[in-house]
Amino acid sequence: MRGYFLFAAKRFLQLAVVVFAGTSAAFLVAHFSPISPVETIIGRVSGQSSFSPTAVESLRATLTELFGYDQPLWQQYLNFWGRFIQGDLGPSLIAFPTPAMELVMRALPWTVGLLTVAIVISWILGNLLGGLAGYFQDNRILKSIGVVAIGIQPIPYYIIAFLLVILFGYVWPVMPISGGFAMSVRPAWSVDFVLSVLWHSLLPAFSLVVAGIGTWFFGMRALVSNIVTEDYVTYADLAGVDRRTVVGGYVMRNALVPQLTALAMALGGIFSGTIITEQVFNYPGLGSLLIRAVNGGDSGLVLAVSCVAVIAVASAIFIIDLLHPLLDPRVRVG
């Protein structure tokens, strides 16, 4: 057990290094962006009415100080870390002066909720069906599921999203195709609101499940059809071990280890959002936010979204590293 804590501590150090390097890179990329937030704000403000040159000049000085651009780069970098640790990444531009972090936090639950549900559903369904298809290789139904999956697999997920919008939004308009909830409902913890959110998330989630299920299905089927030829499966069959135990405890269980790792990676990737799906369904998540930030030249907001993504992916890998020795006893802790 002591060895395990040592191992966890080492991995945590690794996590810290990765987060540090990742956010630093994101900071530099945002800093060297050719679009200056100061000039963008001035352009926006002075475009609407006429200002005297001195007023513009003092506005520029104020903004430069606010964003900290009057300081040398290393000072800005240190300030960035100082604020970053407190969870503050400066004001956003597209919704000035709302803090960038607040925008991210507002968008985060939508994306995380939608993607977690979609990924977990497609993971469970894909692995279950793929595992069964790998074990019962002569089963007609499972074979035909395989054929359908092969057909759907190469279709890009945004095409599936568009198809769903056209089918259920125009041809047979029964589903909402835009937004996270109905306009008529107030965002609150009420039954109406929750139902509306679920109803609105159905199509985007379905498009993600349909697009994601094939990868899990084929991965699991390949893993399982390798494992059924392993000696320990043959031996358990020869010993008359209960069929369900063999399928569950010998075949699926052993194929699941790499699939769980892949699940963690997929879940970590959630935080960068699904830009296209969210755009198609006009969903108020991180992906839409990122698009608006890029279009509005809001480097601070892009930085905030990037940092959240870096931390999320690194943490997901960290958690899976911690779980791995528990899932597969052959993975040595050390």
Binding site: E230, D231, Y232, T234, Y235, A236, L238, A239, G240, G249, Y250, R253, N254, V257, L327, D328, P329, R330
Partner: peptide, 19 residues
Amino acid sequence: RWKHLSYIMQGSMSVLNPV
């Protein structure tokens, strides 16, 4: 199976489930 008829297989390395 196993009650009356059991089996010892070739390849002791791989007949036991590793997990």
